[in-house]
Amino acid sequence: MHMPDEVDESDCCGNGCTNCILDNRPAPSQRALLAGKRNVIENYARFRLLSNEAMNGDAQVRILHFGHTLTEDADDDDDSILDIPPGHHIMLRAELAGHAVLRPYSPYWTDFVGKQFKIVVKLRAGGPMSDYLATLQPMQVLQFRGPIGNYAHDASRAKCIFIIAQGVAIAPTLPLVAEVLDNEDDMCCIRHLICAQDLQHVYFRDRLLDFAQYWNYNHCLYLAHQRCAFCADGCDESCEQLRKSLRYRETVHTGRLDANRLASHRPVSSSNAAAAAPIVIISGHSSFQQAMRETAASVLAVPDEHIFLL
């Protein structure tokens, strides 16, 4: 079985990633080993852009869809798959102005056999990689490597899993939820807490409502700056316009997720999932991750080894 190349300092993007490639080198895929195939992305591999679309009508938030492609002189690659486990990211490497620029991205959708994946990217004005991605056209080829990360779900032990997501960083949490809900034997309960600027910036609402049909899942929206035409100082939870905008099974709170609100989500059931030590997964900007990590450790009494930052 082909093993990934060794990593060196040039493989690090320098952005202080929680799961740095220098600490978590791309590991051989267990699913690939079982299938007798290789994971195409363990070394830098070529992926062709299949589409570049705005999300929710926001041109600054893009859904990028990539598919694996071979070099012109390579033979058909039927002995390979694409395995990016939930909670892991991949590294994009691009040559910009004569320099190699690297950025980590976490796919929210992966096709194991078709070797395709999708990521959500929020473009930031003046950012070298953002400017580059904004102009990408279908059929352009980029290089990715991975998967990088240290989270692995254990379905054998029932527990409560808190998933806290900020803005577009909700995207990589979706496969984590699906991994639990798609397994009928998994007795874990999920508390999905989504922090957004306002209701318009809550992404994947339809997917969240699909998840809400399961007994062991619930989600709550925290809107820091919700405002309608009738609430000059911002909406509160009694705002009629806000209530009319909600869908069935959506729970919303205006303002930020703080310690008191996080404490309100502690399970009170006597079930095995409630009794076991919880897992906390936090996805968002580094400052958001650190703040939520400290809050979760204090409020939920979660040991450090049970807190994972995406």
Score class of each variant (00 low, 15 high):
Ile41Thr: 00
Arg38Tyr: 11
Ala27Glu: 13
Leu33Phe: 06
Asp23Glu: 12
Lys37Trp: 02
Leu33Ser: 07
Asn24Glu: 12
Arg46Tyr: 07
Leu50Cys: 02
Glu42His: 10
Ala35Thr: 09
Leu22Ala: 12
Arg31Lys: 08
Pro28Ser: 07
Arg48Thr: 12
Cys17Met: 12
Asp23Phe: 02
Cys17Ile: 06
Arg31Met: 13
Ile21Ala: 01
Arg38Asp: 12
Gln30His: 13
Leu50Val: 08
Thr18Trp: 01
Gly16Trp: 03
Cys20Asp: 03
Gln30Ser: 08
Leu50Ile: 10
Thr18Cys: 14
Ala32His: 02
Ala35Ile: 13
Gly36Ala: 11
Ala27Gly: 06
Gln30Arg: 15
Arg48Glu: 15
Asn19Lys: 04
Gly36Trp: 07
Gln30Met: 08
Lys37Cys: 13
Leu22Lys: 10
Ala27His: 09
Asn43Leu: 03
Leu34Gln: 13
Arg25Met: 03
Leu33Asn: 03
Tyr44Asn: 02
Val40His: 11
Arg48Cys: 05
Cys20Ile: 11
Glu42Thr: 15
Asn24Gln: 07
Arg48Trp: 01
Leu33Thr: 09
Phe47Asn: 03
Leu33Asp: 04
Arg31Cys: 03
Leu34Val: 14
Asn39Val: 00
Lys37Thr: 15
Phe47Thr: 14
Arg38Leu: 01
Val40Ile: 15
Ala35Glu: 14
Arg31Pro: 04
Ile41Val: 14
Thr18Tyr: 05
Leu33Lys: 09
Lys37Gln: 10
Leu34Ala: 14
Cys17Ala: 06
Ala45Arg: 00
Lys37Ser: 08
Leu49Met: 11
Ala35Asp: 15
Arg46Cys: 07
Gly36Thr: 09
Pro28Lys: 06
Arg31Ala: 05
Pro26Glu: 09
Asn43Gly: 13
Ser29Asn: 01
Ile21Met: 01
Arg48Ala: 10
Asp23Tyr: 00
Gly16Leu: 02
Leu49His: 12
Leu33His: 02
Arg38Asn: 07
Gly36Arg: 03
Pro26Arg: 08
Leu22Ile: 13
Arg48Pro: 01
Ile21Ser: 00
Arg48Asn: 10
Tyr44Trp: 02
Leu49Ala: 09
Ala27Thr: 15
Ala45Ile: 04
Gln30Tyr: 01
Asp23Arg: 00
Leu33Tyr: 00
Arg46Ile: 01
Tyr44His: 10
Ala35His: 10
Ile41His: 02
Ala32Pro: 04
Pro26Gln: 12
Arg25Pro: 09
Pro28Trp: 00
Leu50Glu: 13
Cys17Arg: 04
Asp23Gly: 09
Cys20His: 01
Thr18Met: 02
Asn19Ala: 02
Ile41Ser: 08
Gln30Thr: 10
Ser29Tyr: 05
Asp23Asn: 12
Leu49Pro: 12
Tyr44Phe: 12
Ile21Thr: 13
Gly36Ser: 10
Asn19Pro: 03
Asn19Ser: 12
Lys37Val: 12
Ala32Gly: 05
Leu22Glu: 14
Asn39Asp: 13
Ser29Arg: 06
Val40Arg: 14
Ala32Thr: 08
Ile21Asn: 00
Leu49Asn: 13
Ser29Ile: 15
Leu50Ser: 05
Ala35Arg: 07
Leu33Pro: 00
Leu33Glu: 14
Cys17Tyr: 06
Ile21Asp: 02
Ile21Val: 15
Asn43Trp: 07
